[in-house]
Design a protein around this nucleic acid. Structure first.
Lengths: 118, 118
DNA sequence: CCAGTATTCAACCAATGAGTTCAATACAAG
DNA sequence: CTTGTATTGAACTCATTGGTTGAATACTGG
């Protein structure tokens, strides 16, 4: 009766990975990597409505991947790398696994089963 | 006229991130990090049916995150780090961005951490 | 005040996802 | 061959998601 819990010790990883799973949203992040941008500017390249892009931005914001400001009637979006870092951090624990040799497996096992690994 | 294309030059990233977005699936990967395992063994800790876990495994396999063998009536699962590496690779391109000293990004980071929320 | 621009809200729809239960398959052993 | 075990398949819910259109809000400039 182990205690692997599927449900959300830190639910934000769910939101982060789910946000990254959409190619439109990844493209938006790619665009934002070059600098702050308005919703209209962000939406322009995509073959979908402005409202659809607005929804994508809401998803990205909820995942903590972007933040938004207010200047005049614009609501400029900018990248928020810290959430991206959370995803990277999770993946890194696995990278350690396959990068190094077998004895690191034990170490990984231990930290994993402490349950901070989700 | 830009060329940001939302649709799938790299469609597998969609599957990989989508697979990682579910906590049950992340827990399964965590479990597999300790070694090969059968479906029954994998399913045991979770408060859901065996069939549900079987579905999760199919998602993970489709994303290339695990592979499966056959021995007797068992279909043992093992981790396949290369797909995980694709996700890591994508994220790494962003890590490079915020790690380096683009002053624009730096500025954004600072204002972000001041916590100007909507 | 009025008109235009930027963005979001709301209602709707089709497709997908995560879960269920019941039935089917595959294999090992008696 | 039959039984038990491991796993998948199929059909079904229910909630969520990605998209649409039309209306509302918020702000700027004339």
């Amino acid at each position: 009766m182990s205690s692997i819990q599927a449900t959300a010790p830190d639910s934000s990883l769910n939101d982060i990975f789910a946000a990254l799973a959409d190619p439109t949203r990844r493209a938006i992040l790619g665009r934002l990597a070059t600098g702050e941008s308005s919703v209209n500017e962000l939406a322009a390249p995509f073959p979908m409505s402005l409202q659809a892009v607005s929804k994508h931005l809401k998803v990205l914001e909820r995942a903590g991947l972007i933040s938004r400001g207010r200047q005049a009637q614009l609501r400029p979006c900018r990248l928020r790398p810290d959430s991206l870092a959370r995803a990277t951090g999770w993946l890194d624990s696995y990278r350690a696994l396959w990068d190094s040799s077998f004895d690191r497996l034990d170490e990984h096992l231990r930290s994993t089963q402490k349950g901070n690994h989700d």
